[in-house]
């Protein structure tokens, strides 16, 4: 019953909002270039389905590549940090600097360095920078959170560093890494969109560019359709990662058990 409510209630709110929106637009005769009705957006969506899907595929490719790169780099860096406090103390501040510097400010630089002829690589690098930090922060904390007594036990049995890492530290870090990944999934999408905005015309073919282009042409219904597609993609990424988190933790972690 509770699960049905979890799904039904947000959907009911969405239906109410859309109905109210549709009514308001027709009642006050709001011009379509200011606020199109949901029905107009749906029409724009079906009319532009091919090009929107192509744009989505482009943005999604950048997002997934950046997300994968952020996972590999974030976890690998955290493992390196966990093996050497000196390395962590030396390099962590630079990771923080990378995190707090607005990516729109460094994106033009990256585009110039990588070159517009390799625009996709540049987009992936920018989105990776945005998505990298939550995974690094989560994995670093997680790898440090291993039970000291368990670590002592591995020492007692003469375990190598690699064994301790594989058998104790990484499983301990898993919930922290997965939590970082959930944040990073959304950030990779945001990073990809920001990168496309900065890259501008003639190069980008993703959803962000469709939004800019539709805005310039006052095709506001198409703009909304692209926007809705973007939001739905973000929700789907989050849902997929939440499902993976639940599946990996379902047997043992409090977070997954209380949720089931």
């Amino acid at each position: 019953m509770k699960r049905v409510a979890d799904i039904a209630l947000p959907l009911a709110v969405a239906a109410l909002l859309l109905a109210g929106w549709e009514w308001a637009v027709s009642h006050w005769q709001v011009p379509v270039y200011v606020l199109p009705a949901p029905s107009a957006i749906a029409r724009a969506f079906t009319e532009n389905l091919g090009s929107l899907m192509a744009a989505l595929a482009s943005t999604l490719t950048v997002t997934l590549e950046a997300f994968a790169a952020a996972c590999v780099l974030g976890i690998a860096t955290a493992i390196a940090f966990s093996q050497s406090r000196l390395l962590e103390r030396t390099l962590y501040p630079y990771a923080v600097i990378l995190q707090v510097t607005p990516v729109v400010a460094i994106a033009p630089l990256i585009l110039i360095w990588v070159g517009f002829e390799r625009i996709n690589l540049a987009l992936v690098i920018i989105a990776t920078i945005v998505a990298f930090f939550p995974i690094l922060a989560g994995a670093t904390l997680g790898l440090k959170s291993a039970d000291f007594n368990l670590i002592d036990l591995t020492r007692l049995y003469g375990a190598s560093r690699a064994q301790t890492l594989w058998r104790i530290r990484l499983p301990t870090a898993l919930p922290y890494i997965l939590s970082g990944m959930k944040t990073a999934g959304g950030l990779a999408l945001i990073g990809a969109v920001v990168a496309e905005f900065v890259a501008g015309s003639g190069t980008a073919t993703g959803l962000a560019w469709r939004i800019v282009e539709s805005g310039n042409r006052l095709e506001i219904a198409t703009l909304f359709a692209a926007l809705a597609l973007l939001a739905a993609t973000g929700v789907l990424i989050f849902a997929a990662l939440s499902l993976m988190e639940w599946w990996l933790l379902r047997r043992w972690h409090e977070s997954a058990i209380s949720a089931s």
Partner: peptide, 28 residues
Amino acid sequence: EIGFVFQDHTLMPWADALTNARLPLDLK
């Protein structure tokens, strides 16, 4: 060969009882 038992159980929560009991042997 030393066996050590801590004040709290110090088990790996992600592993079943067999895997927990097997830890010293896996490490060796």
